[in-house]
């Protein structure tokens, strides 16, 4: 409190306080600024951008006698793009991720809606608290644990058997894969939807009710359009995560027929075909970028109204 700085005479200090910026440090390059901004930039350029660029170069390399050689060969691109299996797998992966995005969005919406509008402030905070936890706990172990539920002699079939149903095959099916995808994405989708629903203007909903709109009509005509950005972004994240995931399709879906991620691991394991794996990986990145741009464009379209 008795710092030297505080004893600067009041009157002469007044303009400084009013304009506030007189003593703002000079703009332009400064050692101080660089200390904070450069480390991350350098790190991501070296270890994130460079590897991805290297992937592009790698896709043009050639493999001779199981040895990788630097080259400018389009053989890997031609091989992958002429392969019927690749396109079949590509479309299947696309369809599975798209379906997962819709499924997760549809299943998460009632949950997010209820947390946003039907829970008291304290319970809502608890709900968010609990939803954040699984996002950072081992996805792999959770998927392993689902095997115990879904296997032919697992928990669900044991429970169903006790009332005379089943057994149903759930492991190594599309159903199993979708359970895994939901394990990965459901909490995140709920959270992202929830954050946009919490900002929906409640007077709009009441206005809809006052004008005689039923509950469902109010949801579809007011709530969903108001929260569109969040809902689309949530679905987009679900698509991104499931499109590249290989844990669920492998350990719950059986890995056959494969998805693109499984195809990548198979390709690297068989005969050192890294350039082909790079082609598949680059195609996946391009697909993800295109989807992301399309989804964000759609989310923000016509928002200036």
């Amino acid at each position: 409190m008795s710092d030297q700085a505080n004893t600067v005479p009041g009157p002469s200090n007044m303009p400084v306080a009013v304009w506030g910026r007189t003593r703002r440090p000079a703009k332009g390059f400064s050692l101080y600024g660089a200390t904070f901004s450069l480390p991350l930039l350098v790190w991501q350029l070296l270890f994130f951008v460079a590897p991805l660029l290297f992937l592009i170069a790698l896709s043009f390399w050639s493999v001779r006698n199981f040895r990788l050689q630097p080259d400018l060969d389009v053989a890997s691109w031609l091989y992958v793009y002429r392969s019927g299996l690749f396109w079949e797998t590509y479309l299947r992966t696309l369809a599975m991720a798209g379906f997962a995005a819709m499924l997760a969005s549809a299943l998460a919406f009632p949950c997010a809606y209820a947390i946003a509008f039907k829970l008291a402030e304290a319970s809502r905070r608890w709900a968010i608290f609990l939803m954040v936890i699984p996002f950072f706990t081992s996805y792999l172990v959770r998927v392993y644990s689902w095997q115990v539920f879904l296997s032919d002699h697992g928990i669900i079939n044991a429970a169903l058997g006790s009332i005379g149903l089943g057994p149903y095959t759930m492991l190594n099916t599309l159903f199993g894969t979708m359970i895994g995808y939901l394990t990965l994405t459901f909490p995140l989708v709920v959270l992202l939807q929830l954050f946009s629903l919490m900002f929906v203007d409640r007077t709009l909903i009441e206005a809809a009710h006052n004008m005689g709109a039923g509950r469902l009509r109010a949801v579809f005509a007011v709530v969903i359009p108001s929260a569109r950005v969040g809902l689309v972004i949530a679905a987009l994240f679900c698509f991104i995560l499931t499109f590249g995931d290989f844990v669920s399709p492998l350990y719950l879906g059986g890995g056959n027929p494969p998805t693109l991620s499984i195809m990548i691991t198979d390709t690297t394991k068989s005969g050192q075909q890294w350039p082909r794996a790079a082609v598949i990986a680059l195609t996946m990145i391009a697909t993800l970028l295109a989807t992301a741009f399309a989804a964000v464009g759609y989310a923000y379209r016509g928002r200036g109204r």
């Binding site: 901004s37 590897p51 590249g244 993800l288």
Partner: peptide
């Protein structure tokens, strides 16, 4: 661009990141 570099990595599938990094490193 700076912010994109800072925030994008989690959206790239880990399998691709792993592939690229193993090859690069």
């Amino acid at each position: 661009v700076y912010l994109a570099l800072a925030l994008l990595p989690p959206t790239i599938p880990v399998i691709i990141l792993g592939l690229a990094m193993l090859a690069f490193l």
